[in-house]
Computed example of a mutant assay.
Amino acid sequence: MTRRATLLLTTLFLTLGLAAPAGATGYRYWSFWTLDSGHWTYATQGPSTARPADGDVQGFRFSVSEDSGDAAKPRGATSFAAICARTPAVRGEKRIALLIDFGTAKDAPSAEQPPARRTACARVPSDATTADALAAVAKPLRYDTNALLCAIAGYPAKGCGEQVSSAEDKHTGGGGSGPSAGLWVGAGAVALLGAAAAWQARRRRHA
């Protein structure tokens, strides 16, 4: 019986270890996109180096994702004509259509609410970058020391590309920081099983 109890105890420990969720890690950040033939394509340059041409459509989406292949695209159909119809062309300048998608409440940092999706037509000098166009229509912008875009129009108020676990409880004020109920139940089961094994061992010695 002692051997059986020991085997059960070992199995329970292994089961508890395997059952512990290993939340996938993503990053909360602004992704940068270019509209190509009606489809959003992940930009190959950052907004501070990309120099779009007059008539280009570019988008930004705030979300939690693991990498560029997993990144959420800007939502909603749009076009240059729809965004810049009321912005006339001017010699020596270019017009860049921008779609800014602040994402969903699920991806928002704790205690923040994402603003509504918006579009804007930026008319900027012909040699301007996407960052220049964005600054013309969506201030304040915030960057980190490595020139990573952290906030558009002040959103989010803090944070920049931070890691986020899929198991993180982002909207309950950190209520998930303590041991889970499953952990306490498992610990209780281990304690009971250990006590049973010890009792059986004593019984065999005094038999």
Score class of each variant (00 low, 15 high):
S79V: 08
L141D: 01
G69Y: 02
V164C: 00
P52F: 07
Y155V: 10
A85G: 06
G76P: 01
N146R: 02
I83E: 07
S37E: 15
F32W: 14
A136W: 09
Q45P: 03
S68T: 14
V90I: 02
T34D: 14
D132H: 09
S110N: 12
E66C: 04
L99S: 13
R117V: 14
G46V: 12
C150L: 13
D70R: 05
A116N: 14
F102G: 04
Q45H: 07
S48H: 15
R118C: 10
L98T: 08
S65W: 04
I152C: 08
T129L: 05
T145L: 03
V164M: 01
Q45T: 15
D127P: 00
L134N: 09
G92Y: 00
A72Y: 03
K170G: 14
E93T: 15
A147Y: 10
A136M: 09
A131K: 12
E168V: 09
T34G: 07
Y155M: 05
W40S: 00
C160H: 03
A82Y: 04
L98H: 08
R61C: 04
L98A: 09
G103D: 07
V137T: 13
K158I: 00
C150S: 12
P114W: 07
Q45W: 01
T130F: 03
Y155F: 15
S65H: 14
R75G: 13
R91Y: 00
A133Y: 08
A136I: 03
W33T: 12
A71S: 05
A43N: 09
F62E: 01
K170E: 12
A50G: 08
P47M: 09
P74R: 06
I152Y: 06
S37A: 15
A153W: 05
C150M: 13
W33L: 13
G26F: 04
G46T: 15
V90W: 01
Y42R: 13
S63M: 04
V90Y: 02
E168Y: 04
T129Y: 06
T119W: 08
D67V: 02
D36L: 12
A85F: 07
K170D: 09
P125H: 06
V57G: 07
A135M: 10
S63C: 08
C160T: 07
P88R: 00
A138P: 03
E66H: 11
A50H: 09
V124T: 06
A133E: 06
F80S: 08
E168N: 11
D67G: 04
G154A: 06
P47Y: 10
A50F: 09
G69P: 01
W30N: 05
A71D: 00
A138K: 04
A151F: 07
R91S: 06
A135Y: 07
T44V: 14
V57P: 03
Y143V: 10
L148E: 14
G55N: 12
A77D: 15
E168P: 00
S65L: 00
A85Y: 06
R61W: 02
G69E: 05
A85T: 10
S126A: 15
I152R: 04
A72V: 10
G76N: 07
T119K: 10
R61G: 02
L141A: 03
Y155A: 06
A122D: 08
A120L: 11
L148W: 10
L148V: 14
S63Y: 02
P140L: 08
Y42A: 15
L98S: 05
L141W: 05
K158D: 12
A135G: 14
I83M: 07
E168D: 15
Q45A: 13
A82I: 01
F102C: 05
G55T: 09
Q113I: 13
P74S: 13
